[in-house]
């Protein structure tokens, strides 16, 4: 695992998200260091996805979001990928009727360097050989786990510095979850900073160095992964003990 540097790549300060009159995220603050792998844990409806969507500017939020030292609260979502911030949305969000190769090239939509794009596609195929075999198949025919890998691969096509992952284990068979997490770890090993939202706390804490626990819109616990794994409250609430 890469050694975290001292500067935070992502910094959220008093982040709040409202849907109409309902507050989904009630003033959370957290940070992710360069090269770090951090997770945000919590039950259904805790506000994890809302937090992630706010970070990717898919929804509006108040408070402050700083990415690479720049305040990004007011920026439209589509410019973030140019800055190296990529989101793998919840439920995978692949382009079901496009082929796998087309999905990957779509991930490089904002780039103009054709030769480099082709090289990146090959690089991702080497990393995800299962996708290479199905290169010209329609993405909708892939299994859930393969779709998740494709979604991650597509995000990597944008050459991100920070990857936001929303529940990559959702709806997958345990064996597939393990494979997806292997992929995530290898992405992290390449130096990509990762902020991971997960319900599967055990798995997330095993691969991450730090974690935040979110409950009804607030961050209630923040600690290193080993400490969280040992924490009685975490064990009771998320590890089924």
């Amino acid at each position: 695992m890469n050694k975290p540097e001292s500067s935070p790549l992502l910094d959220a300060l008093n982040l709040e998200v409202h849907y109409g009159g309902i507050a989904a995220v009630k003033g959370v603050s957290f940070s992710v260091m360069q090269g770090e792998m951090v997770c945000l844990l919590g039950a259904n409806g805790a506000g994890k996805t809302s937090t992630l969507k706010a970070l990717a500017r898919m929804i509006n939020s108040t408070g402050e979001i700083r990415y690479a030292g720049e305040k990004i609260n007011e920026l439209p979502s589509h410019v973030l990928i140019n800055k190296g911030l990529a989101l793998v949305p919840e439920g995978r969000g692949i382009f079901a009727r496009l082929t796998i190769a087309e999905n990957l090239t779509m991930g490089a939509y904002h780039r103009q360097d054709k030769a480099e794009i082709a090289a990146d596609v090959e690089r991702i195929f080497t990393m995800l050989p299962r996708l290479k075999e199905r290169e010209n198949q329609v993405a909708g025919t892939l299994s859930g786990g393969e779709q998740q890998m494709l979604a991650i691969g597509r995000a990597l096509m944008g050459r991100p510095k920070l990857l936001l992952l929303d529940e990559p284990s959702m709806g997958l068979a345990p064996i597939m979850v393990a494979k997806v997490f292997e992929v995530i770890q290898s992405v992290a090993a390449q130096g990509v900073t990762i902020f991971l939202v997960e319900q599967n706390a055990l798995l997330a804490l095993k691969v991450c160095s730090r974690g935040y626990v979110m409950e009804s819109g607030k961050i209630t616990i923040s600690d290193t992964a080993p400490n969280l794994l040992a924490d009685a409250r975490v064990r009771a609430a998320y590890l089924g003990e």
């Binding site: 589509h78 990928i81 949305p89 969000g93 692949i94 382009f95 939509y109 904002h110």
Partner: peptide
């Protein structure tokens, strides 16, 4: 959503 995420 995915389209937005790819920078469109």
């Amino acid at each position: 959503v995915a389209a937005k995420a790819t920078g469109i």
